[in-house]
């Protein structure tokens, strides 16, 4: 009993999915394409959140290690954001009265965040982050 549970602990569902995609190249390609289309749709419709789909697409489907997956996802989202930013701007959706303050804040925060990344353990932070995300979603729906 104990022995079996130990073996299970090392053979996760995630790894089985990764193995499946490594064996079936055509399915993996189709899955990548689907993930790409969804990433673009999220980025266009909501103006964000594409990376939340692109990173798991790289780690699960392409079997990339997390750090590399994250870096590659950022590069992939960059042209998407440029396209949709241009369309949102043309639609008159940027209010400069407060827009510049937020953008400035994001840049300052972004630099701080990338330094913090090396110092803080992210496991607990991830739980807090996704908890806040869930609460925000529920509050937005109930509003």
């Amino acid at each position: 009993m104990r022995i079996r549970s130990c073996i299970n602990a090392q053979n996760t569902v995630m790894e089985k999915i990764k193995e499946f995609f490594a064996k079936h190249k055509k399915t993996a390609f189709a899955a990548t394409l689907a993930a790409a289309l969804l990433t673009g749709a999220a980025n266009g419709l909501f103006g964000g959140g594409g990376g939340m789909l692109a990173v798991p697409a790289y780690t699960v489907i392409a079997g990339e290690e997390p750090k590399k997956a994250h870096a590659t996802a950022v590069a992939a989202i960059l042209p998407l954001s440029a396209v949709s930013a241009a369309i949102y701007l043309a639609g008159g959706n940027f209010d400069p009265s407060f827009g510049y303050y937020v953008c400035g804040g994001v840049i300052i925060g972004g630099i701080a965040g990338s330094f913090l990344l090396k110092k803080i353990s992210s496991r607990l932070l991830e739980f807090v982050f996704y908890g806040v995300m869930l609460a925000a979603g529920i509050k937005m729906l109930l509003r």
């Binding site: 939340m52 937020v102 925060g109 630099i111 982050f129």
Partner: peptide, 20 residues
């Protein structure tokens, strides 16, 4: 902006927090 930026910089998806 800073709060969203920190999350983004840490690779946790800044926009998903900044927009709400």
């Amino acid at each position: 902006g800073i709060a969203g930026g920190i999350m983004g910089g840490m690779g946790l998806g800044g926009g998903t927090l900044l927009i709400p």
